[in-house]
Write a protein that binds this DNA or RNA. Structure first.
Lengths: 340, 340
DNA sequence: AATCGATGAGAAAACGTTTTCTCATATTGA
DNA sequence: TCAATATGAGAAAACGTTTTCTCATCGATT
């Protein structure tokens, strides 16, 4: 066999044509199931292609089709707590379609953002997904008017764009309803900074579900705040809660630690429920945390399919799409499903 | 101005040539500072290029140069605790060179790994970086004999490959020396599973630095193990440690929580030092954790520059490169720098 | 036996660059 | 004034595909 490789060291369609004794056009048509040709010829070419390991050069293909089968993912979430599940969902949804994902971590640096966006456009990405840490802040880079479709996930989108986020109100209602179902009657919501839109939505839903005078305590997204909130509540001398809905898992962790230090038993005396289902934290908490999962992977999957649809010219209704959260029952609330 | 855009909607070199009244060859040479031409012509073309926003199509360029200015990053680290800093380093190092990074999360699925590797090769990546969670396990995919250079970071590499990892022994020695410098004399090392190579290296370095009979307790990488180890130590009735070196920050967290529950003060009575500098955990621990940082971002940077060097044909010595760890002083050891 | 349609396969153009080669003109030296 | 050289710029090929067009052959229909 006289396989004379091209300079690049990779098998090209010309090598395959020579090896098969046909022209490159015939090879192309054979492999793509296009054009007319003898079934036997088609099969033979396919067989030889597999034999010599021919794989078409995506650059050449993309040059012609102006589709690169590549999308860009922009994020400013350094720790990847939110981005990573979203990314996993995107990647999972798109790998089946042969699409690869450029990951660009741009922190909060507009200059860096521009560099990355330009690099992606030069590489002819079919679309861009922007992700962040909160739905009420946008990335420090202007993505309006780009020559490719842009989809936003978990970050504020441009007007008339497609944006995905978790349904905070529904998630909060789910958590609150669960506490009530467990039999808790005196509820409190310990959450993050009031200026987060998510915080407001969750607080409203909590109030709606728990009754208007159930207290909401605003603070920061840290264990220490959860800790301090419990100290405040227990020293204030008012009516003590028996069900606590926390704005995230870190706060819940602080709350549970503080309760234990006071000799309050979780879940026997007080039920605690978190938000985020940050597994590595939720599973290590003692007891493991019952919490709300925002289905970020699913969110990523939908965002991925959406940007693909837009790239292929299929139209989509612009606007904010809220995806439902789900409850993950562990042990910090008690009444695990069947009990109660 | 009669800028007639190409079908793709993007400005091409032909548009620019027409606009400038010269040929495409001249434009190309002008922009790349190649060939001979009047300085004035060159400047004019560059000016018009900037005006109409011409950016060369990286696909077309890559087709010709067989350089795509793209690399692939393979990881099986779902939570991104190790991968994310490495990724950040790689990206940071390469963005200056115009190189973008494909992120492929392959879990532990060989089939998925192959799909992603094939997709990357089709897209003509200039090189691949494989990263993982531990240096003594390899990814579930064979990267030997690929037509592009492969660099390994924090995962086991093929023979004769270039591999980067953190210097576990040096990091452990650093931690142990710090405990001694603080004035601790009775040291113990609470760490992860014995079958991790890193665990062995750190334990040896600890023994060397702390004295041969300082105990090493092997367990798992979780808070609960740190908790239980303290329970065991305190109930065993032997000599109690005043300095504890933990195999990771999670164990340290469990250790500190367990000590507090026993009324043992950290750092007054016992100093605790962690490993990993997982900031989101280390900073939230009470007291904040003094720990060893593996410089993963720097590791990523070096891996990025290495794969670039190899892609450009520059030779490199194969073998395992161990990058030094650094000490991050917070409050869990006391004696913060100046004290003692 | 002449024409028609169907079938199989190749030639060539196209995608957007870069690079090599060629050529015309301008400049220099005698 | 003529040749030799330097200079500026364009033509064309190349990269690896896909797609459209053309053409030759063959069997079937009159």
């Amino acid at each position: 066999m006289t396989t004379q490789r091209a300079r690049s060291g990779r098998v090209t369609i010309h090598d395959l044509a020579r090896e098969s004794g046909v022209s490159v056009s015939t090879v192309s048509k054979a492999l793509n199931d296009n054009g007319r040709m003898a079934a036997e010829t088609r099969a033979r070419i396919k067989r030889i292609a597999a034999e010599i390991g021919f794989r078409p050069n995506a650059l050449a293909r993309g040059l012609l089709s102006s589709r690169s089968f590549t999308i860009g993912l922009l994020t400013n979430d350094t720790y990847g707590r939110f981005t990573l599940p979203v990314m996993a969902g995107i990647s999972e949804a798109l790998v089946d379609h042969g699409v690869s994902v450029f990951l660009c971590a741009i922190e909060d640096d507009p200059a860096l953002g521009k560099v990355h966006v330009d690099a992606m456009l030069d590489k002819q990405v079919d679309g861009i997904i922007a992700t962040g840490k909160r739905i009420d802040r946008s990335l420090p880079v202007d993505l309006a008017g780009l020559p490719v479709p842009v989809v936003y996930a978990f970050t504020a989108g441009a007007p008339e764009s497609v944006t995905f986020t978790a349904d905070d109100a529904q998630g909060a209602a789910l958590a609150t309803a669960w506490l009530k179902k467990i039999g808790r009657r005196s509820l409190v919501h310990i959450t993050g900074p009031e200026d987060f839109v998510s915080v407001g939505e969750r607080a409203s839903a909590f109030a709606r579900e728990a009754g208007g005078n159930a207290p909401v305590l605003y603070g920061i997204w840290s264990e220490s705040w959860g800790h301090r909130a419990i100290a405040d509540l227990w020293s204030a001398g008012g009516r003590l809660p028996d069900g606590i809905f926390c704005g995230n898992d870190q706060i819940a962790r602080g709350v549970i630690d503080a309760l234990r230090e006071r000799g309050v038993r979780v879940p026997d005396d007080v039920s605690v429920i978190g938000f985020d289902n940050w597994e590595i934290l939720a599973e290590q908490t003692r007891p493991p945390l019952t919490t709300i999962d925002m289905n970020l992977k699913e969110l990523g999957r939908e965002a991925g399919l959406m940007v693909l649809a837009l790239a292929e010219g299929r139209p989509a209704e612009p606007g904010l799409r809220k995806l439902p959260c789900k409850l993950v029952v562990r042990q910090s609330c008690g009444g695990a499903g069947t009990a109660e």
